[in-house]
């Protein structure tokens, strides 16, 4: 499943207060998500399109356990987040909600050219392939090998998230 869109590039420490600001947290998701990332990029919520990919530095999603941080991105159509590292609770929430989250492979096998996430420019076309665990930027020729997720998490992601997994369990009566 390759998804096509453009990259949105962010730096380190994009925290949950930036993704889902506390002052709007009691609003319905359709309203809350309009404030997603507004303090670092006022255009994001209005211009992001289905299939776009977020490329970020270290500690993406650190902070609160509020899963609206991940849900807002998913509802806005973001196909996935590729970051150097994630806040642990955000990472769990994203998988639970069916939002793909990946880090670059720590030591990519030769002869893959050694591209870094930071080589990706904002707004360039990107394809995130979950099965092959790659992030490809056709215009600049960048391919980033991603750290494959454990089977358990990949299955949850492919099912569409935790609720979808539970639906099967509760319907099958186990």
């Amino acid at each position: 499943m390759a998804v096509d869109g453009v990259s949105w590039v962010f730096g380190d420490n994009i925290d949950t207060d930036v993704l889902a600001p506390g002052q709007y947290i009691k609003l319905p998701m359709e309203e809350l998500m309009q404030h997603c990332l507004e303090s670092v990029d006022g255009r994001f919520a209005s211009q992001v399109k289905a299939g776009d990919v977020i490329v970020a530095g270290n500690n993406f999603g650190i902070g609160s356990s509020r899963e609206q941080a991940a849900l807002a991105l998913k509802e806005l159509g973001v196909a996935g987040v590729v970051a150097e590292s994630f806040g642990g609770i955000f990472f769990r929430n994203a998988i639970n909600l069916g939002l793909p989250v990946f880090t670059p492979l720590k030591s990519p096998p030769a002869p893959t050219p050694q591209f870094r996430l930071s080589d990706i420019r904002a707004g360039e076309p990107v394809s995130l392939c979950l099965q092959q665990a790659t992030l490809v930027c056709p215009d600049s020729g960048i391919t980033i090998q991603l750290q494959p997720l454990p089977d358990f998490l990949m299955q949850m992601l492919e099912a569409g998230g935790l609720v979808a997994v539970l639906e099967k369990r509760f319907k099958s009566g186990s």
């Binding site: 356990s65 899963e67 769990r92 929430n93 358990f152 935790l162 609720v163 539970l166 369990r169």
Partner: peptide, 18 residues
């Protein structure tokens, strides 16, 4: 440890967590 609300709902329903 902290978890989000979907995961909390799953814990409430099953009593389990990964």
């Amino acid at each position: 440890f902290g978890i989000g609300s979907t995961e909390m709902a799953a814990v409430l329903a099953t009593g389990e967590i990964w």
